[in-house]
Design a protein around this nucleic acid. Structure first.
Lengths: 204, 204
DNA sequence: GCACCCGCATGACATCTGTCATACGGCACT
DNA sequence: AGTGCCGTATGACAGATGTCATGCGGGTGC
């Protein structure tokens, strides 16, 4: 074996992050050289430590792991990217792949797959749960327009049409039209269900 | 040192669970003797392994860690209970304490606190984040009645009044009345905000 | 150039939601 | 026995929400 694989860990919950570090630390050929708790610190840390593989959680403050992946891919194209997430949402998988991820793992997969994925991506392989890949292909692409997504996201907290209109500088009628088309595209019956559905699919 | 502290780990995401096990495994005086992925498997596992400390995540299939804690407390009063959660919701802390938990940790606390908490509860101490304890005391108890909570929970997925009425065998007007009083108690302006607020407080 | 989609807007209409007053039986506490 | 809260219910009303038709300007693709 030559020098160990240098890994960066990005995950906002300290306890989980450090636990994953402990797990990877058990492997002789892997060394966790950096840990960050925010998406917007990933890029700098990758640059500073000569990282081979970046392990990115999706849900993080600062920016999402997917956004972070895209940035690293642009600036350091040789760095391998593993996206790790709690939720196996097909839409997440799709965006992760579009951002240039080499592997996509869900946190309820067995722990052994983590180290295995690190080694595989370094060998040039891609690692994706086949079930999830099938689901992502089956459900097709996100049918929502940018505006519809924006409004759904803003409506998620229970804001009224009037508040949405004010926040997004739109007329109230326009807000209602967008919500209405989103509701139809998602085949649901009101904004609450629309938000739930979009979240579930990873389209939000 | 006598024999190591026997710990049970209950957490549904395998990767996180096994990572936490790796973390605790680094400690000489702690041994993870059992791992379960469901709340309803905790009780049996505690009985089968002569566990000293049970480490319970709240969000789990089967039953919640809090419910599991209450059951273990009833059947095995000498077992120490550490509740571990992603969300530092004051209402969760309150219910965990009422269920008989000895410690309450949030996952974004430093990893070192985990092993420390295990040792402390075994020594008879209680471990609670002081900030969270203050918040729990400041906000008072859950103001919602059983029925209100039940209806809020059912309304969370975007069901209409008619559906709620059918599901809960109530008249539509009654559903609206309950939602209305819940909305007022939570000082919000519609059901969506009410659900969000109740979730945030850990009252749902 | 012409279709087509997107973003934006208005107005009208039907339905859903939230509020309020009021009522009754049951239970708990005084 | 009286007071008060909870669960349940009804009816009426105002305001929010969802749908539909229609319109306009800008961009993209053929």
């Amino acid at each position: 074996m030559s020098s160990p694989i240098k890994v960066l860990l990005a995950e906002d919950q300290s306890m989980v992050r450090e636990a994953l570090a402990a797990l990877l630390g058990l492997e002789d050929d892997i060394e966790v050289v950096a840990q960050v708790a925010r998406g917007d610190e990933v890029q700098a840390a990758v640059g500073a430590h000569g990282v081979d593989v970046a392990l990115l959680d999706i849900e993080m403050p600062g920016c999402t792991g997917i956004e972070a992946a895209a940035r690293v891919r642009r600036e350091f194209p040789q760095v391998k990217l593993v996206v790790l997430t709690t939720f196996g949402r097909p839409g997440y998988l799709r965006s992760a792949m579009e951002a240039g991820a080499d592997a996509f793992l869900v946190k309820d997969a067995p722990a052994a797959q983590l180290a295995a994925a690190v080694r595989k991506v370094l060998a040039g392989e891609r690692v994706i749960d086949p079930t999830l890949a099938a689901a992502a292909l089956a459900e097709g692409a996100n049918p929502l327009t940018d505006r519809e997504r924006e409004i759904l996201r803003a409506a998620a907290d229970g804001s009224t049409n009037a508040e949405l209109a004010a926040a997004l500088h739109l007329s109230q009628g326009t807000v209602r039209n967008y919500l209405s088309t989103a509701i139809q595209k998602l085949a649901v019956r009101n904004r609450t269900e629309a938000v739930r559905m979009a979240r579930e699919k990873g389209w939000l």
